[in-house]
Amino acid sequence: MNWGSFSAFIHMGGYAFYVWSSFGVSFALLGMEIWLLSKRRRTLLKRLGQIQRLNASKGSR
């Protein structure tokens, strides 16, 4: 185990800002990619569903 205490872990030997921003931003970006894609999927399914319902109602008439 490297760290004596939790605060030493957070402190990162004085490099806390650099280490945590690197990891933080990297994983935030990956998370954002997932979020954006799932949003894109939801809007796509909604739009295509609407088009399909429209077509179906036209067809039945």
């Binding site: 490297n2 760290w3 990162m12 030997g13 490099y15 650099y18 280490v19 690197s22 990297s26």
Partner: peptide, 20 residues
């Protein structure tokens, strides 16, 4: 963060290479 030891020259800052 927990297994890799602190680097002698670069201190803890070298841990960035694990993502870089």
């Amino acid at each position: 963060f927990f297994v890799a030891p602190t680097d002698a020259q670069q201190g803890e800052a070298y841990r960035i290479i694990f993502i870089h």
